[in-house]
C-alpha cells in the first residue's frame, strides 16, 4: 500500500459523501439536466487523454489518446451545451396566464 493510494482512497470516500450530500438536494424537476451536466463533468478524463495524446512518440498510445480526447470532448462540449439549452427553457410563472402560445 503506497501513500498515494491511501490519499486517493481518502479522496474517493470523502468525494462520495460530498456527492451524496450535494446531489440528493437536486429536485426531481432538474434530474435530466443533472444527468447531462454530470455527464459533462465526467468528461474530466479529457485531462488524462490530453497527456496520452501529446506524448509525441507517435505510437499506438498517441492514437488511443487522440480518440480518447475526441470521446471526452464530445462529453464535455455536448454535455455542458445541452444542459445549458435545457436549463434555459425552465421559466417561472411570471404572468399567471395570458401566455397562450400558438402550437405549430
Amino acid at each position: 500500500m503506497t501513500e498515494t493510494l491511501m490519499v486517493s482512497i481518502y479522496v474517493f470516500v470523502l468525494a462520495a459523501f460530498v456527492g451524496f450530500e450535494v446531489i440528493s438536494k437536486v429536485p426531481p424537476l432538474l434530474h435530466t439536466p443533472l444527468m447531462s451536466g454530470s455527464n459533462a463533468i465526467s468528461g474530466i478524463t479529457v485531462v488524462g487523454s490530453l497527456i496520452a495524446a501529446g506524448e509525441g512518440h507517435g505510437g499506438l498510445s498517441v492514437i488511443l489518446g487522440m480518440i480518447a480526447v475526441i470521446f471526452a470532448m464530445i462529453n464535455v462540449v455536448g454535455g455542458f451545451m445541452v444542459t445549458d439549452r435545457m436549463l434555459g427553457m425552465f421559466k417561472q410563472d411570471t404572468s399567471k396566464s395570458k401566455q397562450i402560445k400558438k402550437a405549430e
Partner: peptide, 25 residues
C-alpha cells in the same frame, strides 16, 4: 504539462470531439 510534446493529435481531438459535441447539443 511538460509531458506534452506534440500538440497535433491533441488539436485534432479537441476540434473533432468539440465539433461533434456542439452538433449533438
Amino acid at each position: 504539462d511538460k509531458a506534452i510534446i506534440d500538440f497535433t493529435f491533441i488539436l485534432i481531438g479537441l476540434v473533432v470531439g468539440g465539433g461533434i459535441g456542439l452538433l449533438l447539443a
